[in-house]
Nucleic acid binder design. Structure first.
Ligand SMILES: [Mn+2]
Ligand SMILES: [Mn+2]
Ligand SMILES: [Zn+2]
Ligand SMILES: [Zn+2]
Lengths: 171, 171
DNA sequence: ATGGATAGCGAAAATGATTTTCAATAGTCC
DNA sequence: GGACTATTGAAAATCATTTTCGCTATCCAT
């Protein structure tokens, strides 16, 4: 394996989004290919975790706890250590995206091609998350990073506020 | 005090940025006023912590650990519990801004009027953070939130990438 | 100013998400 | 099939942050 020591230390590697291989997550057996290409092994656990995200609406902004729970509901018991390891690997491979939606935990969702990147509007009271797309966002991100010589990995625009229903609850 | 139970649970209260009281952090004794207005008490610890941020370039994206350390260097020993409590209160009062620059810890900086809000470009390899301003960002944030009936609290645009010097190190 | 009520302090213990350790297992490649 | 070693699960370890609790200091009313 390429970098065994700090490998699991989040995306500290120069593994950028590869526009040449966009829909990998759709196909059933491609996971093995993607993993092996980078020296990882294909395992049933990793496939099941990815499956969870691919069954659309179900998955979407899942944290480790929710993944563990939803897998249990599907009759699959996968340890937390395995879940965390799989998430890191898939983020590294560009299959998943890690999100900081505030609160002390990380959320994950299927990664999308850079230009289709969406952003988030979070209610700090109830945790409700809405998504939106906006091309100017990604433009600003990429122009800002190239003008400083940064190689862009990804942008996150997160808007915090209070959703309509929480507003009425709080007066 | 208004909401004793979940009070310290981050900014879950409807305490929006007040454009009428912008430069509070500049003045020396205003902290007491701001605290008392909301039922908090003025303490030397809170003043010293705020002082740290106000001595500009020194402070800027400080986490609890760094605050504790820099206070020690100034000969002030303030416990972590007090530091964390003070940070929460000051965020709640709009004096400080809490940032999620990735990595499992939170950073703080002096809050600025909404329209002057700046954003961050983070090197995921060395942690170097650069700031930039962009009006479109805040526009998109506010239009997006009003169009959904959210009451806006704040926006964070964070761009992740690899800085020039880390790029050369990594080949 | 004085005094009572109680918010805030520090030290230590608790929490909770994530990471690591380690022996057993299972992909990959020959 | 067999060697090599990445991956797994369970349990222990980390680490930032939060809570608890007895004591102190601030605030407000007298
Ligand atoms: Mn999303
Ligand atoms: Mn900043
Ligand atoms: Zn809400
Ligand atoms: Zn760097």
């Amino acid at each position: 394996m390429a970098n065994p020591t700090n490998f699991f230390n989040r995306s500290e590697t120069t593994m950028e989004y590869d526009p040449a291989s966009p829909e990998l997550n759709q196909e059933p057996e491609l996971l093995k290919t993607v993993l092996n290409k980078e020296g990882f092994r294909f395992t049933s656990q990793r496939q099941k975790i990815l499956d969870l995200f691919q069954s659309a609406a179900l998955g979407h902004h899942l944290n480790a706890e929710e993944i563990h729970q939803q897998l249990l509901e599907r009759g699959e018991k996968i340890s937390f250590s395995t879940i965390y390891r799989a998430l890191h690997v898939m983020v590294r491979l560009g299959l998943l995206q890690e999100l900081e939606l505030a609160e002390g935990r990380k959320y994950y969702e299927l990664n999308t091609p850079f230009m289709d990147q969406h952003h988030h509007l979070v209610c700090v009271h109830c945790g409700n998350v809405e998504e939106f797309e906006d091309a100017t966002m990604t433009q600003v991100g990429s122009s800002e990073s190239t003008s400083r010589g940064f190689s862009l990995l990804n942008c996150q625009f997160t808007v915090y506020g209070i959703c309509p229903s929480c507003q009425s609850l709080l007066g």
